[in-house]
Design a protein around this nucleic acid. Sequence first.
DNA 1: TTGACATGAAACCATATGGTGTCATATAAT
DNA 2: ATTATATGACACCATATGGTTTCATGTCAA
Lengths: 111, 111
Amino acid sequence: MSAAPAKHDVFQAVADPTRRKLLSLLGDGERPLKDITGHFSMTRTAVSKHLRILSEAGLVKERRVGRETRYSLDTEPLLELKAWLSYFDRFWENKLSMLRAYVESDTDESS
Amino acid sequence: MSAAPAKHDVFQAVADPTRRKLLSLLGDGERPLKDITGHFSMTRTAVSKHLRILSEAGLVKERRVGRETRYSLDTEPLLELKAWLSYFDRFWENKLSMLRAYVESDTDESS
DNA sequence: TTGACATGAAACCATATGGTGTCATATAAT
DNA sequence: ATTATATGACACCATATGGTTTCATGTCAA
């Protein structure tokens, strides 16, 4: 099988406030859809769609139990975000690097 | 209805791969739009729109110098992302918390 | 002053996104 | 067996998003 095209990545998944709230909620443990829906002011279908997107990004696992689908958090994909952020660490960790960046950008001043 | 500001937040800003590439580029220092555009296969206008979105999120500063607009990186808003991510630290930092979450979600098993 | 250059602004377009409502189906409860 | 529940699958809709092209304007160079 060829690797899944991964329609939604973790950056997109996390971009929506509803989905971020979903992740926090699931941080407390596995929950069925109906239970989750109670925490939002939108329809069950809408919540389900958000969970689908989170699932495609690997942030959530689904598991059928009886007639309900239980969702649980998987934080592993957040490591990609963490890694991406770490690229910018040099801009906070010490003022010298910030100064260097400033000086480098200031070599062609014309006014 | 009242016209909402509809501003862009840092999560949305960072969701687009082009914009993430822009941030890396600007990590090397301030650059004028024309220079930036050369690194992408889209039109100058499109790049400009992306920079506008980054600017609204506070991730980029614009500065007019003669007839060009120079863009520079401001990583400060990324701290919000970092802070949000830190909420999930407990899921990686020790296996015990993961185990706890698992056990808590497993109290109503019916299989 | 004339013309090239860098950018902004606006109109437009196709597709993605975030929502809704309705209906079908599997499972649980009576 | 019948009914209530939980969910998924669709069809549909309005707006956002990411891109284009065209035109206007301010600035630099001859």
